[in-house]
Amino acid sequence: MAKWGMVIDLDKCTACQACVIACQAENNIPNSDPEAARTGRNIHWMEMLPMVEEEYPHLRMRLMPRPCMHCEKPPCIKVCPVNATQISSEGIVGQINARCIGCRYCTTACPYTVKYFNWFKPKWPEVMEHQLNPDVQVRYIGVVEKCTFCHHRLQKGRDLARYEGRELGPDDYMPACVQTCPADAMYFGDLDNPKSSVAILSKSKRAFHLLEDLGTHPKVTYLSEGV
């Protein structure tokens, strides 16, 4: 059984936010507007996080693309009263939109604040509905949503591989953010396969995780800048 994970090399990352927009485009995330942004209702499954350390002129700013960490021990699934957020056998933390009651317990329990809520009914100007991805469900009002590692791509890839009578290859499944990353700073693959790039990179001495000390065991690994 695969265990899907991601590695983000901050040394290569240029903070261009291609991953951010690719995610919006792939996952039918509604448009933001000034009001939504002001009131904190805009949705970004993938977001660029600025971390400023120390002070002028010796400061460092670390810019980190932040998807869902897909923790091995996700604090969010512990608290869901209706089993609407679950971790799959392959380690993907998903959200069942049709079951979620919108209590937002998981959103508050997530130490990474990566879960989002549909405060209103998701809406697009009519012509923009053309671009909705047919593989991804448009969410309902009042439910929580989150990064799924583009799980629908796994389903498609797996179906295709099965149809072609072969194993799922490393290129069959890749989230939209990883696919588009211009600097090739993002890697995706099976952490359980010792030969996969993610497995090798996540053992690098540059590797670290966000909020490691919380014991959530994120499956998104960052590689720090510098030598």
Partner: peptide, 19 residues
Amino acid sequence: DLGRPDRIFNIIESGRFQS
């Protein structure tokens, strides 16, 4: 506080006691 009060019975249907 629920986003989907109409689904309140999911608590019985798919209740999860770890929560």
